[in-house]
Amino acid sequence: MVYKIRDKETGKVYEVTIDEETNEITVYDVKTGKPVKTVNMTIEELKEAGYEVEPV
């Protein structure tokens, strides 16, 4: 599923895909559409880390 996340401190917005089964999150560069990095976190962990998470 695709989400937009926003860093509450910097205001930067990222587009991510989240595999609900493995909790693998792939972060994409919004301008190029290319993957930047992959992390292993849940949506709740993202929120605790200071991100706003919205489904696209």
Rank of each mutant, 00 (worst) to 15 (best):
V39T: 05
P55Q: 10
K37E: 06
D7S: 09
T42H: 03
N40T: 12
T10K: 02
Y14K: 00
G11F: 03
I43E: 02
E48W: 10
P35I: 14
E54A: 07
T10I: 01
D19K: 07
Y28V: 07
R6P: 00
Y3K: 02
E15G: 10
T10A: 01
E20G: 09
K34S: 08
N40L: 12
D29A: 02
V56E: 07
K47G: 08
T26Q: 05
E21V: 12
K37Q: 08
I5G: 00
Y28R: 08
D7I: 03
V56A: 10
I43P: 02
V13M: 07
E44H: 10
D29G: 02
K31I: 15
T22E: 05
Y14M: 03
V16K: 00
D29V: 02
E44K: 11
T42S: 11
E21A: 13
T26D: 01
V39L: 15
T22V: 06
L46K: 00
P55L: 13
E54W: 15
T32N: 07
A49Y: 10
K37T: 11
M1R: 14
A49I: 08
M41W: 08
T17Q: 08
N40D: 05
M1P: 14
V30F: 10
Y28N: 03
E24N: 09
D29I: 04
I5K: 00
I25R: 01
Y51P: 01
V56M: 13
G11V: 00
P55H: 08
Y51D: 01
V30Y: 12
V2W: 15
V56H: 09
I5V: 10
K34C: 14
Y51M: 04
N40R: 14
R6K: 11
I5F: 05
N40S: 12
L46W: 04
K37I: 13
V53R: 02
K34I: 10
L46C: 05
M41Y: 07
P35A: 12
K37L: 14
E48H: 12
T26L: 05
K8W: 06
P35Y: 14
T26F: 07
T42Y: 02
E15P: 04
V39A: 06
V39Y: 15
M41T: 06
M41P: 01
P55V: 11
E45M: 10
V16W: 04
E21F: 10
K34T: 09
V16F: 08
T22D: 03
E9L: 14
Y3C: 09
V16C: 14
V27R: 01
N23E: 06
T38Y: 10
V36Y: 11
Y28G: 00
T22P: 01
G11L: 03
E52L: 06
I25Y: 03
L46A: 02
A49N: 09
V36T: 07
E54Y: 13
Y14V: 02
V30T: 12
D7E: 08
V13G: 02
K8P: 13
I25Q: 01
P35N: 05
N40E: 07
D19E: 05
I18G: 00
V30G: 09
Y28F: 09
E52R: 03
V13I: 11
E54M: 13
V39F: 15
T32V: 03
T26G: 01
M41K: 05
N40P: 06
T26K: 08
V16A: 14
D29M: 02
D29Y: 03
E44G: 10
K12H: 10
V13A: 05
Y14T: 01
T10M: 02
V2R: 15
V27D: 00
I25D: 00
T10G: 03
D19F: 06
T22S: 10
Y3D: 00
R6F: 09
D29H: 04
K8S: 06
M41E: 01
D7P: 00
T10N: 06
V2A: 12
E24F: 12
E54P: 03
E21L: 11
I25W: 04
E20V: 12
T17Y: 12
G11E: 01
E54K: 05
E44W: 11
V27G: 03
R6E: 04
K37C: 15
T32P: 01
G33A: 05
V39R: 04
A49E: 08
I5S: 00
E45P: 01
E21M: 11
E9M: 13
V56Q: 08
E48N: 13
Y51F: 11
E44T: 09
I25A: 05
I5M: 06
L46G: 00
K47Q: 11
T32L: 05
V36L: 15
E48M: 13
V56K: 07
Y14L: 03
I5A: 05
V56P: 07
D7T: 00
E15W: 15
I25T: 03
V39E: 04
E20K: 12
K8A: 06
D29Q: 02
E44N: 12
K8L: 11
A49M: 13
T38G: 05
V36K: 04
K8M: 09
R6Y: 11
N23W: 07
E48V: 09
E15N: 15
I18R: 05
V39K: 04
G11M: 03
M41F: 09
E48T: 10
P55K: 11
E45N: 07
T17V: 11
M41G: 09
L46I: 09
V13R: 03
E52Y: 06
V13N: 03
I18Y: 15
N23A: 07
V56D: 07
D19I: 06
Y28T: 05
Y28Q: 02
I43S: 02
Y3A: 04
M1L: 13
Y28A: 02
E24D: 07
Y3H: 05
E52H: 08
G50C: 05
K47M: 13
E54F: 14
G50D: 03
G33M: 07
K34H: 11
E52P: 02
Y3V: 04
T10D: 03
E20L: 14
E15V: 15
T38S: 08
V36W: 12
E45I: 06
M41A: 07
V2N: 11
R6A: 04
T17E: 06
E44F: 10
R6W: 12
V56G: 08
Y51Q: 01
Y28I: 08
E24Y: 12
I43Q: 02
I5T: 01
Y3S: 02
I25P: 00
D7Q: 07
Y14W: 13
E52G: 04
E9G: 08
Y28D: 00
T26A: 03
E15K: 13
K47R: 12
V30I: 14
E9R: 14
Y51S: 01
T32F: 03
I18V: 13
K31V: 15
T22A: 11
K47D: 04
K31M: 14
G33Q: 06
N23C: 08
V13D: 04
E44Y: 09
E9H: 13
D19S: 08
E45V: 05
K12G: 05
G50A: 05
I25G: 02
T32C: 07
R6N: 02
E52M: 07
K12Q: 13
V13W: 12
E54I: 12
G11I: 00
K37P: 04
T17F: 10
E21W: 08
K34Q: 10
V56I: 12
M1C: 14
V16L: 11
V2Y: 15
K31L: 15
E20I: 13
E52S: 07
K8Y: 06
K4T: 09
V36M: 11
E54C: 14
T17I: 11
M41N: 03
I18L: 07
P35E: 08
E9Y: 14
E15F: 15
V53F: 09
E54R: 05
V53N: 02
P35Q: 08
L46H: 00
T38D: 04
K47H: 07
G11S: 03
K8H: 05
E45D: 12
G33Y: 05
A49V: 07
V2E: 05
T17M: 09
V27M: 15
E9K: 15
K8R: 11
G50H: 03
T26Y: 06
D7W: 04
K12M: 14
V53Q: 02
V53P: 04
K8I: 10
T42G: 06
K37R: 12
